[in-house]
Design a protein around this nucleic acid. Structure first.
Lengths: 234, 234
DNA sequence: CCAAAAGTGTTTGATTTACACCCATGG
DNA sequence: CCATGGGTGTAAATCAAACACTTTTGG
């Protein structure tokens, strides 16, 4: 089947910046490209938008097809669009990037399809210019920057945690993202003191040694004003 | 000329949310549509992206063509993309929206081209569902929300002012955007105390009665941490 | 009982808020 | 010389940072 148009054709794709924290490091989900261009290179999961498909739906679908991850109920937001005329050597392609934030999953998220999806440390992916295909290095950078910024004044941090989490686990998210150590007491007070941020489940968690911690879940996500600030360095 | 492709055609447009403050109200720039669909309805300025044109360049060009406004050197940033399959009754169209913030201009910005561009109060434009064509109501809402948010933790407020401005003029921006009265003394101290926010020009301005105010210009735009907060209500 | 982590109390210092008050100009 | 807005001083209230200390578990 072929389409004709009096205007030159644009191609529209979606790409996903999917972040999680594994082994105390910020990691992003990447796939190995099977076809040209950039065959064998790492890339953000993504693909073409169907002609009658909503952008957000396409992003979720591609993530599921390429990596087997279901982001149902998880944090997904539109990040930005990328449309430099030469960003794809084949055609004029506009990519709408989405940002997803997940709790650490039980490793190899091999998908039904092109199942070589892997987590890589963001620092490693960004360390060299040529690790990622297309302009995906820039997209990843923008995604990480967005996540960074939203940590401070939204409850995005809770999206890195499981449904139920301890305050210490949430604190670890901030510590890894900011590369600092936070005072456990002050963090606890701050986070439990902001209305709508977290709410107690009533249950407790025994995480190894020490006193068991109260379990919390995401609250109705109030915006943080004043924002969380970095506290005492270790 | 006709183009053929094995994939269905997408159309790509840019739209601009152009904000300013006039007569103590937040206003947006709109044009009256000359063609179908939505002929005669108000719409955000925008249009089709050329096949070899960068998105940001297209946004600036359309603004200039449709409204005669040059946003050279002014604040322009990508806002978000809109691509619901039915957002344009004619074709599948993806629109990348840009946000621009300007000082109050000497009124009718009539462009070279479809020169019926006008400022309207944002509250009026948003008050009814059908004042704007397409999904431009949602786009405008998103732009206003973005501007609102960025006021608190960036120096975006200075973009509503002329090159040189008094602290009182800057304060007026915040008061109008937030619908509050701010304490002049505290605002002055806060704003001049944050490094990189504003820098003095050395000149003074005589605005009517009262002591002449020092003139400032935008600083190298430090991010505001802690952010500006709303102060005393009037 | 000891180590370790959770969570609370308390002190200190910084920041914000409220508002008094002086400054500089136009009429 | 008075009204008006610009800008600084200052005290009280609020908040954040540092850290001591109590609680509750596993070994």
């Amino acid at each position: 089947m072929a389409y004709t148009s009096e205007y030159p054709p644009f191609f529209v794709t979606v790409d996903g910046v999917v972040l999680t924290i594994r082994n105390d490091a910020l990691c992003a989900l990447v796939v190995t490209r099977g076809g040209e261009p950039f065959r064998g290179r790492l890339a953000l999961p993504g693909g073409f938008v169907d002609i009658d498909e909503d952008l957000g739906v396409a992003a979720v679908r591609e993530l599921s097809e390429e990596t087997g991850i279901s982001v149902q109920g998880l944090h997904v937001e539109q990040l930005a669009s990328y449309g430099a005329p030469d960003r794809d050597p084949r055609h004029r392609t506009i990519s709408i990037a989405y940002l997803a934030v997940l709790p650490d999953l039980p490793e190899p998220v091999g998908g039904d399809d092109a199942s070589d999806a892997h987590w890589h440390r963001v620092t490693w992916l960004l360390a060299r210019k040529d690790r990622l295909a297309f302009d995906h290095r820039q997209i990843l950078r923008d995604g990480v920057e967005r996540a960074h910024a939203k940590l401070e004044y939204t409850a995005l941090g809770t999206s890195f945690c499981e449904r139920a989490f301890t305050i210490a686990e949430l604190r670890r998210v901030y510590e890894v993202m900011w590369g600092v150590e936070l005072d456990p007491g002050n963090f606890h007070r701050k986070v439990t003191g902001v209305a709508g941020f977290v709410e107690p489940t009533g249950r407790k968690a025994s995480r190894g040694t020490g006193r068991p911690a109260e379990l919390y879940r995401r609250g109705p996500t109030a915006s943080l004003n004043p924002p969380l600030t970095r506290a005492t360095l270790g």
